[in-house]
Design a protein around this nucleic acid. Structure first.
Lengths: 192, 192
DNA sequence: GTGATTGTTGCACGATCGTATAGCAGGTGA
DNA sequence: TCACCTGCTATACGATCGTGCAACAATCAC
């Protein structure tokens, strides 16, 4: 079976997207070179050919997922207008709604975190991504007029509340919904 | 090498503890029958002999870890006396201090969550454990006089904040410490 | 048209996985 | 003392893992 021919960049993107799909559906254990290649409709050897190893492909998958999350959050904030409070609320709400608060994305993150243990590249990427998350919250809070002295604990609290609500939304989508989570987060923001 | 002889119960406990250790140190990927057996100082065949398969051993490891967490929290609440607010504060503080808030325990949970994807037994255990966590918080909040109408969102918020702070404490222990986390949580409880 | 480049396949290799099983060895009751 | 039970080891088996490599095919420069 000859298989279609494509540019290297397009094939790399296909493989990355297939890797993300497999990671979400079958977890880290099922993310073998053969499984990912089959999901992309190509032969296993292509992974080594384009990425030089499965670890490099997984790192690319991490970047892909993190980039999509950043884009979603940035576009939510951008479309909220100029009011600092509206921008903060939009940022929080986007974190608590699909596609970010979705069981499939949590499954992807868990698989990625699990792989991070044996792969220093993913570990470093994760630290960077998480620091940017906290920093973004501090910016949005500062724009809302939170005094600099209280900025740090406020940002830690908001980040923690978002993470916790996000986690629960993904783990058991039936116990409460995005609207309720947004209300709880809004009450917390009102106390700052 | 003959190897020492022990009772079945003691050997099972040894294997479970070795499994937890390996899960924490090397993640789900390194939790092979051979690795766990080596960590326990026995031959790989013993896992099949005592548990009938590695999945059953991992489930036992989940129960072991969850049981240890429950014991830690229960003893913290018990030693806080009779005052409802002190008991709630003790419960929150115990969640944000070692041994619960510890990178090693997070690594163990991630490995377990990752394994849950292919093992329905772990998935069910996880749902049960998480529901008990939320229920316990509702009890403690009710004892503090939180009106029944506000109990549900309050418990969701407290659980989320605890989870988020716990996650950040485990992921980057250097960015803030247990005392600061406890202060943030205390401020949140004061608003309820 | 033709040679060179490169995306792609198919297969083979060694390592490691989970599990089954045969047999050895330590403890126990008659 | 001796048979018996059982914890335990050692080994083998088939499956699957990641990777390297030789051959093929499609595209491009000329």
């Amino acid at each position: 079976m000859p298989g279609k021919r494509t540019s290297a960049a397009a094939r790399r993107r296909d493989l990355v997207e297939a890797a993300v799909r497999v990671l979400a559906e079958r977890g880290a254990a099922g993310a073998s070179v053969r499984t990912i290649a089959a999901a992309a409709g190509v032969s296993p050897g292509l992974v080594t050919h384009h990425f030089g190893g499965v670890d490099r492909l997984v790192e690319a998958a991490y970047d892909h997922v993190a980039g999509r999350v950043d884009e979603t959050l940035a576009s939510a904030v951008a479309s909220a207008g100029e009011d600092p409070r509206a921008r903060l609320a939009a940022y929080v709400a986007a974190n608590l709604a699909p596609p970010i608060a979705h069981p499939e994305l949590l499954a992807t993150w868990i698989a990625l975190w699990n792989l991070a243990r044996r792969d220093a590249g993913i570990m470093a990427r994760h630290g960077h991504h998480y620091a940017a998350f906290r920093e973004r919250i501090e910016e949005l809070l500062a724009a809302c007029g939170v005094p600099a002295a209280r900025l740090r604990p406020a940002a830690i609290g908001v980040a923690a509340l978002i993470d916790g609500l996000w986690l629960e939304l993904c783990l058991s989508p039936g116990s409460f919904d995005a609207d309720e989570a947004r209300g709880i987060a809004a009450d917390y923001l009102a106390t700052l």
